[in-house]
Design a protein around this nucleic acid. Structure first.
Length: 476
RNA sequence: UCCCCUGUAGCUCAGUUGGUUAGAGCAUCUGACUGUUAAUCAGAGGGUCGUUGGUUCAAGUCCAACCGGGGGAGCCA
């Protein structure tokens, strides 16, 4: 069906043309003014319908949610709210939307309600904006890396590697769950399973990405990731998308530089290409915050926050410095923290929030954590106590990036495997990269949905992915 | 998994120390009006108060269990 995208028709340059518009009705005012949206932009196009020339039965079908196709001349609008409009000569209803039953109305809905209508929430301005931006960020991720000589690597989604310790895993099997084959010890005999061994959905593509980096130099993965944790928070999903660059001949400092530059690039890309959507989301956020007490509101607007991150250096401190800073902080001295602040214990949310939101008021990169609280593959520092790990924390969301310089020394890595109880025969292929032509390398994982939260100002991660997967929720 | 909050009309919410026939705005329907911007005006319909059980002369209101939703914590990205 040949038709014009609404985003093209809002431009005065198209005035005078005969145009055809297909889209969904947002409102129908005065039995004359039809606001139509086709997803090409957050803005609606106003169609002006001649009551005299349009029969009543047809007009009655122009209800919120209906799909229509109309043609006519694009003219400069006589009204105030828009620059152009279409004088409709012919209009057809492609799909009716029974107004008694269609749940999406032209007014404010709660995010809760729309989450239960995930199949229809795309029709709202908010979710239209969020998912246009999500697309833009996907594209920008690939563009950023491609422009800098990285290769996109498709790491496996089904994996037999269970050594990463990144969380509970979803099992993948083709066995008949009602008649599981057992071995002599009475345990499930995975030799009879599809792959002949236990397999799961991936919790990270990192280990495989490292293998690629040790030949291609700079690689990145961007794929779905699965965690079977019983997490019920506004920033966790059981199925989410993660970006994992991995770079050979790069140390922790290069890794931090990459993370910071990457984030700034993405935010700038959003500002450059999604100004209309961002300004709507900024307005939405301000409306939401009207009901909140002053101290819970954002000090800066959405676009101000994005610009602030772009224009300012990320704060870089070590874990040890963070501990010192926290122990000298007001809330610590006044006993406001619930959890202890001691060297060797992981930082709690309340501590990270204090550092990022109260003390520095900007993104913070914390490095060099105690080895005991970080993964086996992170490179041991010369102090023997800490590893070259880094977490990037941003206001409102917390950890958006986690990464490290990888342990490239075979003996050290073998020691770590033993210490973490990881059998060498499970990771022989990973260790091989350290046996043959090992080199300094580093990488990180960025939670894509957490990035989208930061860019759009949405406060629940379930509202930045089309169909969220969380405990007890796999509808749609 | 733990802590806190919550469940009343299609939606967003009121509902007093337990007390007649459970309300409002929006949406819907009917009518009016017609250059409107979430149009406006008038009228109408719309409820097993999440479920089950208990206390009571009497439960939307109090208690318990269960189910659903949200926020926070942990785990992490």
């Amino acid at each position: 069906m040949k038709h014009d995208a609404i985003i093209e028709l809002l431009d005065a340059a198209s005035i005078g043309k005969k145009v055809t518009v297909c889209g969904w009705v947002r409102t129908f005012r005065n039995e004359t003014f039809l606001a139509v949206n086709d997803g090409s932009t957050i803005k609606n196009l106003q169609l002006v319908i001649d009551r005299e020339k349009t029969d009543e039965a047809l007009r009655k079908r122009l209800t919120t949610g209906a799909a229509i196709c109309a043609s006519g001349e694009l003219v400069a609008s006589k009204g105030q709210g828009q620059s152009t409009e279409v004088l409709v000569e012919h209009i057809e209803v492609l799909g009716d939307a029974d107004p008694e039953k269609f749940p999406i109305q032209m007014k404010r809905h709660t995010m809760d309600f729309l989450r239960e209508k995930a199949h229809l929430r795309f029709r709202t301005s908010t979710f239209g904006a969020v998912f246009r931006i999500r697309h833009g960020m996907t594209f920008a991720v690939h563009k950023y890396f491609n422009d800098r000589g990285f290769y996109n690597l498709h790491t496996p989604i089904i994996t037999a590697s269970d050594a990463e310790g990144a969380g509970e895993m979803f099992r993948v099997t083709s066995l008949d769950l009602n008649a599981l084959p057992k071995n002599d010890e009475g345990k499930i005999d995975f030799r009879e399973d599809f792959f002949g061994k236990e397999t799961n959905l991936t919790v990270s593509g990192q280990l495989e990405a490292e293998l690629g980096a040790m030949a291609l130099g700079k690689v990145y993965t961007f794929g779905p990731t699965f965690r079977a944790e019983n997490s019920n928070t506004s920033r966790h999903l059981a199925e989410f998308w993660m970006i994992e660059p991995e770079v050979a001949f790069a140390d922790i400092r290069d890794n931090m530089d990459l993370a910071e530059d990457f984030m700034k690039y993405l935010l700038q890309y959003a500002l450059d290409h999604y100004a209309d959507d961002l300004s709507f989301l900024e307005q939405r956020e301000q409306n939401e915050e009207k009901d909140k007490p002053q101290n819970e509101r954002n000090e800066m607007s959405l676009t101000e926050r994005l610009r602030f991150v772009i224009d300012n250096q990320f704060e870089r401190i070590t874990y040890t410095q963070a501990i010192d800073l926290l122990r000298n902080s007001k809330p610590y001295k006044k006993n406001k923290f619930k959890y202890p602040v001691e060297w060797g214990v992981d930082l709690q949310s309340e501590h990270e929030r204090y550092l990022v939101e109260k003390h520095f008021k900007r993104p913070v990169i914390i490095t060099d954590y105690p080895a005991t609280i970080k993964a086996f593959y992170m490179r041991q520092n010369d102090d023997q106590k800490t590893v070259a790990a880094m977490d990037v924390l941003v206001p409102g969301i917390g950890e958006i990036i986690g990464g490290s310089q990888r342990e490239e020394r075979l003996e050290k890595l073998v020691e770590k495997c033993a210490a973490f109880g990881i059998p060498e025969e499970h990771v022989w292929w990973y260790l091989d990269t350290r046996r043959f032509g090992s080199a300094v390398h580093a990488g990180f994982g960025m939670g894509f949905e957490r990035l989208i939260m930061f860019v759009t100002g949405m406060t629940n991660i379930r509202d930045v992915i089309p169909f969220p997967r969380t405990p007890l929720n796999a509808e749609f």
